[in-house]
Computed example of a mutant assay.
Amino acid sequence: MSENDILELEQLKESFGDDPETFIAVLEMFMIEVPNDYEDLKNKMSIEDYYASGLLAHKVKSSYRMLGMEKETLLLQEIENRAKRKEQIEEIPRLFKQFQDGYEEGLKLIMRTIKSLKRR
């Protein structure tokens, strides 16, 4: 991922047309809500509350899906599935670590996208 990469926002375009102001509003809301949910998820993971982690993963997943961030969406989906089914829960910490490894870079990508849209 380069410093010039921005999100394609295909999902948002399908939902809202090509409306940069709406995109900015959605992205800014993401930057407010997701970090709070991420902290909650991190806390639940630290105490091995995988049921609550699965519920939070479900909530956060929809935000990533809306932005077309597939890797994050898939990792959160796997956490949610394993927590919900109570199967292979020993894999949940590894999946969360993979999500965490890209979390900050994902936020930077969103911020670059917001700046790019504001310059339009």
Results as ranks from 00 to 15, higher is better:
residue 8 E to R: 04
residue 10 E to S: 06
residue 10 E to C: 01
residue 11 Q to C: 14
residue 13 K to F: 06
residue 13 K to E: 11
residue 14 E to A: 00
residue 15 S to P: 06
residue 17 G to M: 09
residue 18 D to V: 13
residue 24 I to Q: 13
residue 24 I to G: 01
residue 25 A to F: 13
residue 25 A to H: 10
residue 26 V to I: 13
residue 26 V to P: 01
residue 28 E to I: 00
residue 30 F to G: 04
residue 33 E to R: 11
residue 34 V to P: 01
residue 34 V to G: 00
residue 37 D to F: 14
residue 37 D to R: 14
residue 39 E to S: 06
residue 40 D to C: 13
residue 41 L to E: 04
residue 42 K to I: 08
residue 42 K to R: 12
residue 44 K to V: 09
residue 45 M to H: 01
residue 46 S to I: 14
residue 51 Y to D: 14
residue 54 G to W: 09
residue 56 L to Y: 02
residue 58 H to L: 02
residue 58 H to F: 03
residue 60 V to M: 14
residue 61 K to C: 11
residue 62 S to P: 02
residue 63 S to G: 04
residue 63 S to N: 06
residue 64 Y to M: 09
residue 65 R to M: 04
residue 67 L to W: 05
residue 68 G to K: 02
residue 68 G to D: 08
residue 69 M to E: 02
residue 70 E to H: 10
residue 71 K to H: 11
residue 72 E to M: 03
residue 73 T to V: 03
residue 75 L to M: 03
residue 75 L to C: 01
residue 75 L to Y: 07
residue 76 L to M: 12
residue 76 L to R: 01
residue 78 E to C: 05
residue 78 E to W: 08
residue 81 N to F: 12
residue 82 R to F: 10
residue 84 K to P: 01
residue 87 E to R: 03
residue 88 Q to F: 10
residue 91 E to R: 11
residue 93 P to R: 00
residue 94 R to D: 15
residue 95 L to K: 07
residue 97 K to V: 12
residue 97 K to R: 11
residue 98 Q to T: 12
residue 104 E to V: 06
residue 105 E to C: 06
residue 107 L to A: 07
residue 109 L to V: 02
residue 109 L to C: 00
residue 109 L to W: 08
residue 109 L to A: 04
residue 110 I to F: 00
residue 111 M to N: 11
residue 113 T to E: 09
residue 115 K to V: 14
residue 116 S to Q: 12
residue 119 R to G: 02
residue 119 R to C: 04
residue 120 R to W: 02
residue 120 R to E: 05
